[in-house]
């Protein structure tokens, strides 16, 4: 059993996004966080001071732990932003403004 089977999902045509340069498959409507979780990725940010990995925590846009760089724009909340075909998603290092 998986969540898609449980609700008998008939998802739209999958597309690909890039995460740190590698292609991963995405289903339409999923947020960046849901796409990354589905690909087995749980961390996409390193903290400013400790460089520690972070990913989703609250899942509803409150905690800002899941910040990620999408198409060159840092500090996007992965749990809110929908994944778009061809999106270039990158692990955000620190503030995301250092490069």
């Amino acid at each position: 059993m998986n969540p898609l089977e449980l609700v008998r999902a008939r998802a739209g045509t999958p597309f690909t996004v890039r995460f740190d340069g590698r292609e991963i498959e995405a289903l339409p409507g999923r947020t960046v966080a849901a796409v990354l979780w589905s690909a087995g990725v749980t961390a996409w940010r390193t903290t400013r001071d400790g460089g520690r990995p972070r990913g989703v925590f609250c899942g509803i846009g409150v905690c800002f732990d899941c910040l990620v760089t999408v198409d060159g724009r840092p500090n996007q909340r992965a749990c809110l932003v929908p994944a778009e075909p061809g999106a270039d998603i990158r692990t955000q290092e620190g503030t995301g403004h250092d490069e």
Partner: peptide
């Protein structure tokens, strides 16, 4: 959060 991603993202 686990529930939100399950209900909303089916993941």
């Amino acid at each position: 959060g686990a529930q939100a991603l399950l209900k909303g993202g089916l993941t």
